[in-house]
């Protein structure tokens, strides 16, 4: 291949749709605004606890990234988180020794739900928007039915420590929530995966499924794996959320839209084929920062979903204007 341009190009090329520069810029601006109002927000204890609290949505955004970049949607993760928390409470029933087995069960449950989403979408040809909306409703109904309308049992302290405990008295940083460590590990895995052959192939599937199929990619399989990853990320999020805020039917409410907003904010194209998992996770952090900012400035929490909706519309509009102006 002939390099027809000078070496400076790759650096410029990073500022493009799907690049990280915009989301980093937005995050920095929000953090500055936040520290103006709340000077100690960036101090280690406050920052650590903020990151720990944000871990579930960041995990969900990472999972959602794989689905969206492959050209699909996963609307089922919010109710999946709720279902996981309720199921965990009933299975553990405050019995510490069941904590680890239940963690395994939840991960398997998440993977199974993702598998069903993926197979129904790719093999039965149901648009994923509908598939996962159906799964959302099925899970809501099933959880109510299974628990007779009120959560049963309870989570053990063993189980809850993932979401609420921390390494105490760490030099310089104070306390490091377990949730943050779990997040870092999962994020590292997600980044590795997104750069692997599978990750790159998945982007190709989202970008042009016909090309991918004719290049030997098993498109259905790649997409199904993406759904499974999203389901597993929902299981991890549920484990952290259950620990942090306890058992309720509201545990996962609205998280699917939070995750999708975060992913879109992070520069991942709805419809697939463009974006990075780091962008998606930064998008989630940005969203959480924005909510914290609204909180500190005394904006009503009721505006959260309005803000999310506006972000989705704005982000998609900006990206489609940019791509059509080429």
């Amino acid at each position: 291949m002939r390099i027809a341009e000078s070496r400076v190009l790759p650096r410029f090329a990073r500022v493009r749709p799907g690049g990280l520069a915009p989301i980093v810029a937005i995050l920095v601006v929000l953090l500055v605004l936040l520290t103006l109002r709340q000077p100690d927000f960036l101090s280690p204890p406050s920052l650590m606890s903020f990151l720990g609290r944000s871990a579930p949505i960041v995990l969900l955004a990472a999972g959602q990234y794989f689905v969206i970049v492959s050209g699909e949607f996963d609307l089922s993760v919010g109710s999946l988180v709720t279902a996981q928390v309720v199921v965990a409470a009933r299975l553990i029933d405050s019995e510490p020794s069941r904590s680890w087995p239940v963690v395994v069960v939840l991960l398997a449950f998440g993977a199974l739900v993702g598998l069903v989403n993926g197979v129904v979408t790719t093999r039965l040809g149901v648009p994923s928007f509908i598939t996962t909306l159906g799964m959302f409703l099925i899970l809501v109904g099933a959880v109510y039915l299974w628990s007779d309308g009120a959560p049963k049992g309870g989570l053990s302290e063993e189980f809850r420590r993932f979401g609420r405990r921390a390494f105490e008295d760490v030099p310089a940083l104070g306390r490091i929530p377990y949730a943050l460590l779990i997040l870092l590990a999962a994020a590292a895995l997600a980044v590795l995966l997104s750069r692997s052959d599978f990750g790159r192939t998945l982007v190709a599937v989202g970008g042009n499924p016909r090309t991918a199929g004719l290049s030997g990619v098993r498109v259905w399989r790649a997409k199904t794996i993406a759904f499974v990853l999203s389901g597993v990320s929902a299981a991890l999020a549920a484990i952290l959320l259950g620990g942090y805020s306890g058992v309720s039917f509201q545990a996962g409410a609205g998280l699917e839209f939070g995750a999708i907003t975060a992913v879109v904010l992070g520069g991942v194209a709805l419809g697939g084929g463009r974006g990075s998992v780091v962008g998606a996770m930064l998008g989630a952090l940005t969203l959480e920062t924005l909510f914290a900012l609204m909180n500190f400035y005394g904006v009503s929490g009721a505006l959260k979903s309005t803000v999310q909706g506006a972000i989705i519309l704005l982000a998609v509009a900006v990206s489609s204007v940019r791509s059509s102006s080429r």
């Binding site: 799907g18 982007v203 190709a204 970008g207 042009n208 016909r210 090309t211 991918a212 194209a269």
Partner: peptide
């Protein structure tokens, strides 16, 4: 339509 992935 089926030879390249334009955005990659």
């Amino acid at each position: 339509g089926e030879g390249i992935v334009a955005g990659q």
